[in-house]
Simulated scan of single mutants.
Amino acid sequence: MLFQNCNQPVIALLKDTRIPFSVLLLAYALLLNINLLLHPPTVNFTASAPLSRLLLGWLGSPVLAGGIALPLLFILLVWLQAVILNGIINHHRLVEAANGLPGLFYLLLIALFNEHLYLSPPFFAVFGILVALSIVYNSYYTDNFTLFYDAGFAVAVTSLFYLPALLMVLFIFIGITVMRVIKWRQWVVVIMGVLTPYLLATTWFFLTDHLAEFASGHFLHITNSVVQTAYHAPEWLYKTGAAAAVSLSSLLIAQQQLAFSVVKVKKMFNIVIYLLLVSALTFAFTNQYTFGPQALLALPAAIFLAIGFYGIRRTFFAELLHLLLVGMVLYFQYFKYLQL
């Protein structure tokens, strides 16, 4: 079945429910991140957040640090994030039929910044944000307090990878308010979930006599990137501007397409808008010209793009826009090497 449809354009393929989306997304992830295999970034295997520091310490072992093992691992993790995002959107039916477009556009947006997001704490934090998004969506169907505790717990654990992710508590509060009737007990349970990992972490560092180091390192220093790649103001402006323009235009198009959708879909779409706004707040905790928060912004932006492209009925036009986006990504990835 896959080979019978392989002559179709990419967008059409990922709208075809008979196609195994995960396989196509894996191939797409490899193609969009070849630059990492050709020129693996130099990594500084340390971070301020405790869980990121622990994970990077393991990744910096001699077994993994050499060759293309880490680039391949990064590509697999990006692909896994895309598959999870795709599963969430398809499960809750934000569009008419299951498709692979959310994962495709997530891979595309991450590829635009892949050298800077490579094994970074914000990149690892995306897994926790996906869990939080899934829990908020599931709260539409039930008011089980366990869900709200899990949401707070997931955000807190995520913030132990990347402290600005703690802002996602706002997203949880807003999400619960949008999806259900407001109950103050739900907010209390969320706060309890947030406090639990920090109580456990504080206890551990107190018992090991590293509490002061944990407090100063985690709360006073934020690691947005671990690669030794130079940042340039024009590059930051061009990439961020391009991503913002694409995301906002897709938001407007998707909003128009879902104007007459059922209440559930409208609520879930509004949740994505709030996710975008809260994710944007993480820029307040970055150094100048860092791309770290783009990992979080890629999630809502990919959803907007997926909804917008799904509504395009002319295959040629959709594929042309897709190729333009791919061309933009490849230009930013390889242009600097052509100048050498």
Rank of each mutant, 00 (worst) to 15 (best):
Pro197Thr: 05
Pro197Ser: 11
Tyr198Ser: 11
Thr202Gly: 15
Thr203Val: 13
Thr203Leu: 15
Phe206Gly: 11
Leu207Ala: 15
Leu207Gly: 12
Thr208Met: 12
Phe214Pro: 11
Ala215His: 12
Ser216Ile: 14
Ser216Glu: 15
Gly217Ala: 06
Leu220Pro: 07
His221Phe: 10
His221Lys: 12
Ile222Tyr: 07
Thr223Asp: 05
Asn224Ser: 03
Ser225Gly: 14
Val227Lys: 04
Leu237Met: 09
Tyr238Asp: 13
Tyr238Arg: 10
Lys239Thr: 02
Ala242Met: 08
Ala242Trp: 05
Ala243Gln: 03
Ala243Asp: 02
Leu251Glu: 01
Ala254Met: 05
Ala254Phe: 10
Gln255Arg: 13
Gln255Asp: 05
Gln255Asn: 12
Gln256Ser: 13
Leu258Thr: 05
Ser261Ala: 14
Lys264Ala: 12
Lys266Glu: 08
Lys266Asn: 09
Met268His: 10
Phe269Val: 04
Asn270Thr: 07
Asn270Lys: 12
Val272Trp: 06
Val272Lys: 04
Tyr274Ile: 00
Tyr274Ser: 09
Leu275Arg: 06
Val278His: 03
Ala280Gly: 04
Ala280Glu: 01
Ala280Tyr: 03
Thr282Val: 00
Asn287Thr: 14
Asn287Cys: 08
Tyr289Gln: 05
Tyr289Ala: 04
Tyr289Gly: 04
Thr290Trp: 10
Pro293Ala: 01
Pro293His: 00
Ala295Thr: 00
Leu296Pro: 03
